[in-house]
Amino acid sequence: QEEEKEIKRLAKKFNASEEEARRAWKKAGGDPETAEKILKKKG
């Protein structure tokens, strides 16, 4: 599933848990760029 792959990639890229990545993904409405910004800010 595309979403799961994206979440795993985000978690790995930002050294975050999949739970954090999933939360960022949901907050971003499934937009990878926005999710990255959220995780970057958090990191």
Rank of each mutant, 00 (worst) to 15 (best):
13 K>T: 05
8 K>G: 06
21 A>E: 00
11 A>K: 04
3 E>V: 10
41 K>D: 14
15 N>Y: 06
20 E>C: 12
6 E>L: 12
26 K>W: 09
27 K>D: 15
6 E>K: 05
10 L>E: 00
42 K>G: 13
39 L>P: 00
28 A>S: 09
33 E>Q: 11
19 E>I: 06
8 K>L: 10
30 G>K: 06
2 E>M: 10
30 G>V: 01
43 G>I: 15
9 R>D: 06
5 K>P: 05
28 A>H: 01
32 P>E: 05
3 E>F: 11
27 K>P: 02
15 N>V: 04
30 G>L: 02
32 P>T: 11
31 D>K: 06
10 L>V: 02
7 I>E: 01
26 K>I: 15
15 N>G: 13
33 E>V: 11
27 K>H: 09
13 K>H: 05
11 A>L: 04
2 E>R: 09
10 L>T: 01
27 K>N: 10
39 L>Y: 00
5 K>L: 14
14 F>V: 04
41 K>V: 10
43 G>V: 14
29 G>F: 08
12 K>E: 12
20 E>T: 06
13 K>Q: 08
43 G>N: 13
1 Q>P: 13
43 G>L: 15
32 P>L: 15
26 K>M: 14
26 K>G: 09
26 K>R: 13
29 G>K: 10
2 E>S: 10
15 N>K: 09
21 A>D: 00
24 A>V: 05
6 E>T: 08
17 S>R: 04
34 T>M: 15
42 K>D: 12
19 E>R: 07
37 K>S: 10
34 T>E: 13
24 A>H: 01
43 G>M: 15
13 K>M: 14
4 E>N: 08
42 K>T: 13
26 K>S: 10
3 E>N: 09
3 E>Y: 12
26 K>A: 13
36 E>V: 04
27 K>V: 10
42 K>P: 08
9 R>I: 06
37 K>V: 07
42 K>A: 13
7 I>Y: 03
7 I>S: 01
32 P>H: 07
40 K>I: 10
16 A>M: 12
2 E>N: 11
12 K>W: 07
23 R>Y: 11
14 F>C: 13
8 K>H: 08
2 E>K: 08
43 G>C: 14
4 E>K: 06
2 E>W: 15
22 R>H: 05
23 R>S: 09
31 D>H: 08
35 A>V: 07
32 P>C: 09
27 K>Y: 08
32 P>A: 12
24 A>M: 02
39 L>I: 05
16 A>L: 14
32 P>I: 15
32 P>M: 13
17 S>V: 03
18 E>Q: 07
29 G>P: 02
42 K>L: 15
30 G>I: 01
3 E>M: 11
8 K>M: 11
10 L>W: 02
1 Q>E: 14
24 A>K: 01
9 R>W: 04
31 D>R: 05
39 L>M: 10
1 Q>H: 11
12 K>I: 10
4 E>Q: 08
18 E>N: 05
17 S>Y: 03
9 R>L: 07
12 K>D: 10
11 A>S: 06
20 E>H: 04
41 K>F: 13
22 R>C: 09
9 R>K: 09
33 E>G: 08
6 E>Y: 10
5 K>M: 15
29 G>C: 15
12 K>N: 10
3 E>T: 10
8 K>V: 09
21 A>K: 00
25 W>A: 03
24 A>R: 01
34 T>P: 01
14 F>N: 04
5 K>H: 12
1 Q>T: 12
37 K>F: 06
37 K>G: 09
24 A>S: 03
40 K>Q: 15
4 E>T: 07
22 R>K: 11
10 L>A: 01
20 E>V: 07
4 E>H: 07
37 K>H: 09
11 A>T: 04
42 K>N: 12
13 K>Y: 06
23 R>I: 11
36 E>F: 03
28 A>K: 00
33 E>N: 10
8 K>F: 06
12 K>Y: 06
41 K>L: 13
19 E>M: 07
36 E>A: 11
12 K>L: 12
5 K>T: 11
26 K>Q: 15
9 R>E: 06
11 A>W: 01
18 E>T: 08
42 K>M: 15
2 E>C: 11
29 G>M: 10
35 A>K: 00
5 K>W: 12
17 S>D: 06
35 A>M: 05
37 K>E: 14
7 I>L: 04
28 A>F: 01
9 R>Y: 06
36 E>R: 03
38 I>K: 02
26 K>Y: 11
22 R>M: 08
35 A>T: 05
41 K>P: 07
19 E>L: 06
34 T>A: 13
40 K>V: 08
14 F>S: 02
8 K>D: 06
36 E>W: 03
23 R>M: 13
14 F>I: 02
26 K>P: 03
42 K>C: 14
28 A>M: 00
35 A>C: 07
13 K>D: 06
13 K>P: 00
3 E>G: 09
19 E>T: 06
40 K>E: 14
24 A>Q: 01
10 L>D: 00
38 I>W: 05
43 G>W: 14
25 W>Y: 14
20 E>K: 03
22 R>Y: 08
8 K>Y: 05
21 A>F: 02
9 R>V: 05
34 T>Y: 11
33 E>I: 13
40 K>S: 14
23 R>K: 12
2 E>A: 11
40 K>W: 09
13 K>R: 08
7 I>R: 01
23 R>H: 12
23 R>F: 09
25 W>Q: 04
15 N>S: 08
7 I>Q: 02
27 K>M: 14
15 N>L: 07
21 A>N: 00
24 A>N: 01
16 A>C: 15
28 A>E: 00
31 D>L: 04
20 E>N: 04
22 R>E: 09
13 K>L: 12
3 E>A: 11
34 T>V: 15
25 W>C: 07
21 A>Y: 01
36 E>D: 04
9 R>Q: 06
33 E>A: 13
7 I>W: 05
2 E>H: 10
43 G>A: 13
25 W>I: 11
16 A>V: 15
27 K>A: 14
2 E>Q: 10
23 R>C: 15
18 E>W: 11
6 E>W: 14
39 L>H: 00
37 K>Y: 07
22 R>T: 06
